[in-house]
Design a protein around this nucleic acid. Structure first.
Lengths: 105, 105
DNA sequence: CAACTATATTTCGATACAGCAATATGCAAG
DNA sequence: CTTGCATATTGCTGTATCGAAATATAGTTG
C-alpha cells in the first residue's frame, strides 16, 4: 500500500464525506434521475447539484447520459452501494451499542 | 435514510478522508502499536499523530489501552477493514479500466 | 436567429481543518 | 518531589471547499 494509493483512497473517501453528495447518491440508488429531478428530490440549489454531480462524475461514482436537453445521472460504480452498506451497518452497530449501554445500566 | 443519518455517514467518511489517518489505520492493521511506534511507522509529528488518533478514537474506529507510560492503539471496528477493502477493490478496478483503455486503443 | 429551458461554471464570503510549534498533563524512577 | 519520557492539547496560519448568487453554455423550438 503505497503513499500514492493512500492519498487516492483518502480522496475517494472525501468525495463521500459530504452530506450533499450522499443525498444525491441516495436519490440515484432508487433509479436514474435528471438534474431537475435531483433538485426536487434533494431540495438543493441547481448550481450546487450540478457542481456536486460533477465531482461524483469525475470520480466515476456516477455516469451521465444526455437526453435531449436533459442530463440523466445514474450510479456507475457498484462499490458505492457496498461502501454505503458497510457504513450503514456500522452506524446500526454503534446505535445498538449505545442502546445496550443504556438498557443495562 | 434520514438526513441525520446522512450527516452521520458523511462525518464518518470524512474521518477516513485524511491520508494521515489512513496511514495510521494501515499501520494498525498489522498489529496494535504505541504512539511512539506509530510516529516511526508513519513519519508524522507527535502532536499530529496524537490528534488524529484522538479523532479515530472518538469515532471508535480505534481503541486505546494504557501500558504504563505508553498508549497502545488498535483497530476497534472491523468495518474499517471492510471499508478499506472495498475502496482498494475500487481502485484496482479503476486502474484495470485505465490499463485496458490504453491496451486496446 | 431569437427565446426558452436545462445544465454547467464562476465568484465570493464564511467555515473547517490540516500541520507546525509550543505547552501541558500524566506516569515512573531515583 | 523532581526529573524525564510518552502522550495530549492548544494557538496559529494557510489552504480547501461549501453554499448562494450570478453568469455562461448548450440544446430545442418557433
Amino acid at each position: 500500500m503505497s503513499d500514492a494509493q493512500i492519498n487516492e483512497a483518502a480522496r475517494l473517501f472525501s468525495i463521500l464525506s459530504e452530506p450533499s453528495r450522499l443525498k444525491l447518491l441516495r436519490a440515484l440508488m432508487d433509479r436514474p434521475l435528471t438534474v431537475t429531478e435531483l433538485i426536487e428530490a434533494t431540495e438543493m440549489k441547481q448550481g450546487n447539484v450540478s457542481k456536486h454531480l460533477g465531482v461524483l462524475l469525475s470520480a466515476r461514482f456516477v455516469a451521465r447520459e444526455r437526453e435531449g436537453n436533459f442530463a440523466r445521472y445514474c450510479i456507475a460504480d457498484k462499490n458505492v452501494y457496498k461502501l454505503c452498506d458497510v457504513m450503514c451497518c456500522r452506524m446500526e452497530e454503534a446505535a445498538r451499542r449505545v442502546a445496550e449501554e443504556f438498557g443495562v445500566s
